[in-house]
Design a protein around this nucleic acid. Structure first.
Lengths: 148, 148
DNA sequence: AAAATACTTTACGTTTACGTAAACTTTATC
DNA sequence: GATAAAGTTTACGTAAACGTAAAGTATTTT
């Protein structure tokens, strides 16, 4: 079995460094489904996992709506209906393509950052050279002052 | 030299599959700097490159503000001021860390999609087996009817 | 010259993802 | 039993990234 524990809203908020407002909002949008004891929310470890997925999705540029779609689709997939299974496979394939695009984008960005960094270091090296020449000039100056 | 051409707003919009509204918005936000002939915008190949970077940034989950910051920083970097150079190097390092995080996220997502896909295929295989068994049953049924 | 085409500015509208404040209950602590 | 701490709902506010008219200008085509 999982960790099998339950979580309060502030426990989750603290663990993942989000506000309770955000967590409530995610519930409101149908991404989380806490139960209630009285009116207090009780989150399951499934909710915890989903929160983690939500945040990772955000870092990857996914909207909450997209993530919710995936959650819902997965839930329906678990029903075992053939149509849903095929739909899920199709969706997975499309998401994979999206990830491929992102990997390409990242690789490109990294290359460009390499050249940018190289130029920076080159420019810095030039500045250092200039400085050394100035220091040499200054090292001579005192003498010329004394001779005056 | 570059491609050295200039571009109209609709040329760029068509090439990158965005609306002219978006292009004007990017200018408004200080991300593009077209010149004017009369009141008509004329985009340089530098603008074209920047538009490409803007869109890639978006796919990578960067806001326009973040992208603008990088543009501005890079422009100031080109001035050759030492402080700016160091700032740029620092920023590059932070962006690299961000990309690393994204790569981890993507790798994680891919792994989870692998297991999700495997479960789907397994469930589908089970369904196929059931179907074959049903077909076998149906193939026998006609005989049993005739014998009645 | 009239009409079509491409461009412009101005400005209000919309969606997403929360922030923030107000007013209220429930539970834990002194 | 008062007070603080953590939770709740309701609701208005906001920044980002455009969408969508409306109304005008400039140029090209017929």
């Amino acid at each position: 079995m999982d960790i099998k524990k339950t979580y309060s809203i502030s426990e989750l908020a603290k663990e993942f460094d989000v506000t309770t407002r955000s967590v409530r909002f995610y519930e409101d949008q149908g991404l989380l489904h806490p139960t209630r004891r009285g009116q207090t929310r009780i989150f399951s470890s499934k909710d915890r996992v989903r929160l983690k997925l939500i945040l990772r999705g955000k870092r990857m540029g996914f909207s909450l709506a997209e993530t919710k779609e995936l959650f819902d689709l997965w839930d329906e997939t678990l029903s075992g209906n053939e149509k849903q299974l095929l739909l899920m496979l199709d969706t997975l394939a499309r998401k994979r393509a999206q990830l491929e695009q992102q990997k390409n984008d990242i690789a490109q960005a990294e290359m460009e950052m390499d050249t940018a960094e190289a130029r920076c270091r080159e420019a810095l090296a030039d500045l250092q050279k200039k400085k050394r020449q100035q220091n040499k000039a200054q090292a001579v100056e005192p003498e010329s002052l004394e001779q005056k």
